[in-house]
Design a protein around this nucleic acid. Structure first.
Lengths: 104, 104
DNA sequence: ATGATACTTTGCCATTTTGCCAAATATGTC
DNA sequence: GACATATTTGGCAAAATGGCAAAGTATCAT
């Protein structure tokens, strides 16, 4: 377990990889999904109801999140349940709260 | 001081705002810049040397970061120094480290 | 094996965004 | 005024985006 803030990125690949993770989070629907998963797993149908888009669209959003390791999926019967892989992601959201009070 | 992970986003505007912050971080050069600023302030020329792009390009990257509140600038003489506004951003980077060990 | 349910993948699309530079424009110093 | 530093603007080709519909896949029940 590393102490936070002590490690820095170094290689070009690391910068790109970090950027990719952020890019996966750069869409409101995907943020909404991640936010929902913070409370526990949800199946695709539930998430579809949440974001109010076509299920194929939601599935695509989920695959974006999965491709960078933000979520995992687990099939149970005909349903597929998605889970947040990293609790730390929520600290990150918490951190964002502070950004609201920005003028300038 | 709120406990992390207890607050959730709610409104459409909040989701969009969070997404915008992530989008600002979705570029390798900008991640590189933020990473550098974690060690302390730097002027534009220094950051330009770091990322090896035209100074106008770097200035644009900085304005993206500034527009979402990630950095602040302070003019001193002819130079402009940039600073990370939120230390919590580095925890966020730390969190990303764990993502490296992803297969699937 | 037929059908139903739940999800994924693919193809397609118009539109938007990106990332970069060069040139022009501040802004401050000497 | 000349110089140094940084920002803004305009332009551009290329890439990414976000959405849906249709077709495909997997699992279960009858």
């Amino acid at each position: 377990m590393k102490a936070c803030g002590t490690e820095r990125l170094k290689t070009k690949a690391e910068f790109r990889r970090a950027a990719d993770v952020f890019k996966a989070l750069s869409n409101p629907s995907r943020v909404m999904i991640v936010n929902a998963l913070a409370d526990g797993e949800h199946c695709v149908a539930e998430l579809t109801a949440l974001v109010q888009l076509d299920i194929s669209t939601v599935s695509n959003h989920l695959s974006v999140l999965r491709s960078v390791g933000i979520v995992t999926d687990e099939r149970r019967g005909t349903q597929v349940f998605y889970t947040l892989r990293k609790p730390c992601l929520m600290n990150l959201f918490c951190c964002l709260d502070d950004f609201h009070s920005n003028e300038k």
